[in-house]
Amino acid sequence: MSDTALGAKPDPHVSGDDPNRRDFIHIAAGAAAVGAVGALAWPFIDQMNPAGDTLALASIEFDLSKVAEGQQVVVKWRGKPLFVRNRTPKEIAEAVKDDHADMRDPATDESRHKPGKPQWLILIGTCTHLGCVPTFGGGEYGGWFCPCHGSVYDTSGRIRKGPAPKNLAVPDYSFLSDTKVKVG
């Protein structure tokens, strides 16, 4: 850069001067570029979030009469397994008995089902550790056992042993009638 060699008309702009029109152009252009990139960044990030049709499929209805006592039906909801379990009185009793046991994520059994319907336990069937699907009937608490990293849940789906930090999640659902629930 040898602007001095051009000589005849030296650049009137010397650093340290008050902002002049050229500075204004530089700052305005820079700010516009940064603003444009910033404004465009969000659409390019947000496009990866769930799309409208994905969100639209987010709730399902399920007929409970298909599930016999002591049985569990696994349905797919939001791409994940949903456990719909018709609990036996023995399972309920075991869950209530342990309400005040030492737990990682303390919760009473009552808080995990709808009032007056203790036999219906509806849970999101993904282990709260890393998302594997626990199998029913494994582990020493009569509930679920995760084959991936050995988390053990009781008959209320509460975490009792292993690396998972939280109980199996209870989704938002409501009873439309005695035999029909809407999940999501």
């Binding site: 990866m48 979030n49 769930p50 994905t54 987010a58 939001r78 791409g79 994940k80």
Partner: peptide
């Protein structure tokens, strides 16, 4: 994780990206 999946679980949007 929801952002990575493009949904509520690993699914078609996840496979595509």
């Amino acid at each position: 994780t929801t952002w990575l999946w493009g949904g509520f679980a690993v699914d078609d949007p996840t496979l595509n990206r």
